[in-house]
Design a protein around this nucleic acid. Structure first.
Lengths: 219, 219
DNA sequence: ACCTATTTTTAGACTTATCTAAATATATTT
DNA sequence: AAATATATTTAGATAAGTCTAAAAATAGGT
């Protein structure tokens, strides 16, 4: 099987491909992995030899089919464990990421399958991100950022873009959680801040906040 | 914190200290760890520098207080995860060891604590081995090997010495499991084989079997 | 006590994943 | 299109953990 490091690179490439819809540059990967470009080049060569990525010098990398499958498996495990920690072990959603980073590398197909079953085949992790099923299929939601809504529009909070503790604790403090209905009452052109209505409370939030909350509009 | 490898060495030293009640020799450790004596010497030096073991050249190693504490923590996690796999995820007791070998290295005190609580603070893992509590306290049972019993003596099966799949599946096949009452009906002096009574069935077992089953005698 | 066998350690090499610094390729600006 | 800036790769080094082969220490037998 693959090393922790290899799996982490695959995961990072997967996320960056989604983000930029294109080949992933060495520098972007170095930033995502919090390492040096030269280290990235080294690792990319190894992944390429193992046919996990397609790589041409100076052209960036793309995941191969095998690479994508492997990345999705790791993401599946990560999100299942996050769900487990929150739903079964009383963790708060801002505490689970680092532990899931460790647990996602545990190698056992049966474990993943049984954990999934034990949890009732959850569709989304505590941050609203979709959990791939055993075949690697995602349920891709037609979500948008709260910051993209206009005055008087409304929708349901379905996810967070930023999963940092600081952000998640801010949401906790202001009683914003997944599943809640949010309506835009006012939107300031100057700084992008908003006045929103959530559970009969009015709340003013900065653009940094609205830019990190995913909303699903009811059609 | 400590690496997977360091933790595995500490665990091995812990088990060997129990077994031999003395300092652990380089060769014994090499055998237990399935590696070469020279590798063991290297690692022992590192553990010694980190004050996890007390080491004098050619004299073998002993765990320091810190080393013992660390080893017990790893063993605690190993056994809690084994219990989780069997009790919550429908694993058989012969399938859990390798996965627990991975899970025992996950670093999060809160995870261990909450897992313990979630499982109801179990006292023994699926093989009958005691699970240390959060303070590192074991419940040491006054158990003995079935092979040590004499004709007409009886007791309750409380654990297995060998945890290999082959042995555990043999027990499954013959309906021998923890908690069951076993009485020695005959004991063959020649080869140490026994005729035992378990749940009204009579069963002939070799010494290899009786030598790997722990029995608790009722006083 | 000496010789031999066994155990343990040392020395030097290899692999994985990383780094710094230098070299090279690509991209951008004028 | 040349000059400059940026991105990427290469070369060589380091640390962790392992190995083989050789050297050194200990233990055992007589």
């Amino acid at each position: 099987m693959f090393s922790f490091s290899e799996e982490n690179y695959l995961k990072a490439i997967f996320h960056l491909e989604r983000k930029y819809q294109a080949g992933v540059s060495t520098n972007a990967l170095a930033e995502e992995m919090d390492t040096k470009a030269s280290s990235v080049t080294d690792m990319i060569k190894k992944l390429s030899e193992k046919e996990l990525v397609v790589y041409k010098k100076y052209q960036g990398v793309k995941l191969s089919e095998l690479g994508r499958k492997t990345a999705v498996e790791v993401i599946r495990k990560h999100r299942l464990w996050e769900y487990f920690l929150v739903e079964k072990l009383n963790f708060n959603w801002d505490e689970v990421h680092d532990i899931a980073e460790q647990l996602e590398h545990i190698k056992s197909e049966k474990l993943t399958r049984e954990l999934d079953k034990f949890l009732g085949f959850p569709k989304r992790d505590p941050h609203g991100d979709p959990i791939p099923d055993a075949e690697g299929n995602f349920s891709v939601a037609n979500k948008m950022l709260l910051s993209e809504l206009e005055k008087t529009e409304q929708g349901i909070c379905v996810g967070v873009k930023d999963s940092s503790s600081d952000f998640l604790r801010f949401l906790d403090k202001n009683n914003i959680s997944l599943g809640k209905d949010i309506k835009v009452l006012e939107k300031e052109a100057f700084d992008g801040s908003m006045l929103i209505l959530i559970e009969e409370r009015q709340l003013r939030i900065s653009q940094l906040i609205s830019n990190n909350l995913y909303i699903k509009i009811q059609q």
